[in-house]
């Protein structure tokens, strides 16, 4: 198996209507059309999806592990950010 210059693609699959596309994995493909087809072969052969998106991995901007603290550890002393004070009236089912 030789290494190729095919770019990497990220695959997002919508498992059924009404749900959003979810990241399923990644793959190599020479272009977008083949990325879609490879995604179909790799991720939806057993009826897992109704729609596929492929995105060049290079187009994704990701947060850096170095920025973990400023990004993901907000001050815990601002309790108003966490809506835990509300009493849920009885009989309300869909909150």
């Amino acid at each position: 198996m030789t290494n190729t210059d095919w770019p990497l693609w990220e695959v997002f699959v919508r498992s059924r209507r009404g749900l959003s596309h979810t990241h399923a994995g990644s793959l190599h493909a020479p272009d977008a059309e083949f990325a879609l087809r490879n995604a179909r072969d790799l991720y939806t052969r057993r009826g897992e999806g109704v729609s596929i998106w492929v995105v060049p991995s290079s187009a994704i901007t990701a947060s850096s592990p170095d920025e973990k603290d400023p990004f993901f550890e907000p001050a815990a002393d601002k309790p108003y950010r966490h809506p835990t004070f509300y009493e849920i009236p009885e009989g309300v089912k869909h909150l």
Partner: peptide, 12 residues
Amino acid sequence: APVLEEEVALAN
């Protein structure tokens, strides 16, 4: 096959 993805495609 030349690449893994194509191997899966042919096997399918």
